[in-house]
């Protein structure tokens, strides 16, 4: 079953067509890669699905229902996300960051918080416990009390992932999850993403420039160039597509050879 469906989605920024009548489905339980050269429109796709940007044409459906809500309502529908350039709440601790990820699981309002009623304290303890579990799952529990700002970049990326995972969304959007990580960390994260799917049954849609990471991890891949879809299929299919090689992988192989 298709968890996320994009049908003829078009986004224009002034005269520039960032996403051009794009259609693709993300099947439930898959790890789906969205790749393409810089400026292909991948992040715009993420931002449309997150509702930060509204499409000029086309439709997005999530679990069969039109995804047409405010940005802050997206997470309630079951879609979590991370950002390309880590967007942590830098002033707060790692644990607080993950607890903010659980914002919609709580009910405490300003008055309740001020009065610290029993219900509020119980909710707080439960939220902290869930946040701790997610930190432990990702192996970064030791940072719980540290301030997010100033931690190594790889750790910051994991904190962001923890923040999005804490609520156990049914679909998680990962924008360049391994950027800035070393090869060991990349391998570990690939394992984590597989685990996210197998243990929590989450569907994953990710944008990534690291080709070997994408090809090893993803079940299906959609390739974009200049805002349009140029190819789609399993990793081997995509890798053999002449269009893709021309637009993207060709350059990549030359780069690799040059290195």
């Amino acid at each position: 079953m298709a968890m996320l469906e994009l049908q003829g989605v078009t986004v224009r920024f002034g005269g520039l067509v960032a996403v051009n009548s794009l259609s693709f489905d993300v099947q439930e339980g898959t790890i789906h890669g969205l790749i393409g050269p810089n400026g292909a429109g991948k992040s715009t796709v993420f931002n449309v699905v997150s509702r930060f940007i509204r499409q000029d044409a086309g439709e997005i459906r999530f679990r069969g229902q039109a995804l047409d809500c405010e940005p802050h309502e997206v997470v309630m529908r079951g879609i979590g996300r991370t950002f390309q350039n880590v967007e942590l709440f830098r002033g707060q601790t790692v644990l607080d960051n993950v607890m903010i990820g659980l914002h919609t699981a709580g009910k405490t309002d300003v008055l309740g918080g001020a009065l610290q009623t029993r219900r509020v304290r119980e909710e707080e303890a439960a939220t902290a416990k869930r946040a701790h579990e997610t930190l432990r799952f990702l192996g970064i529990a030791e940072y719980a009390g540290r301030r997010a700002y100033g931690l190594p970049y790889g750790v910051q990326k994991l904190i962001e992932l923890a923040r999005a995972l804490a609520l156990r969304p049914s679909l998680i959007l990962l924008d360049e999850p391994v950027a800035g990580m070393n090869p060991t960390e990349r391998m570990e994260l690939a394992g984590v993403i597989r685990q996210i799917r197998s243990e929590f049954g989450m569907t994953v849609l990710l944008v990534e420039h690291d080709m070997s990471f994408v090809m090893n991890l993803c079940d299906r891949i959609t390739v974009m160039n200049f805002g349009s879809k140029i190819s789609e299929g399993t990793p081997p299919e995509v890798q053999q597509d002449p269009q893709v090689i021309h637009a993207y992988l060709g350059e990549e192989e030359q780069d690799a050879a040059a290195r």
């Binding site: 802050h72 997206v74 607890m99 903010i100």
Partner: peptide
């Protein structure tokens, strides 16, 4: 507590705050 964290989230990153449902 929860509302306080949400306020600080708004201060630190408006996009991330929204993505967290704030």
């Amino acid at each position: 507590s929860r509302p306080g964290r949400a306020l600080m989230a708004v201060r630190d990153s408006e996009v991330a705050a929204q993505a967290m449902g704030i």
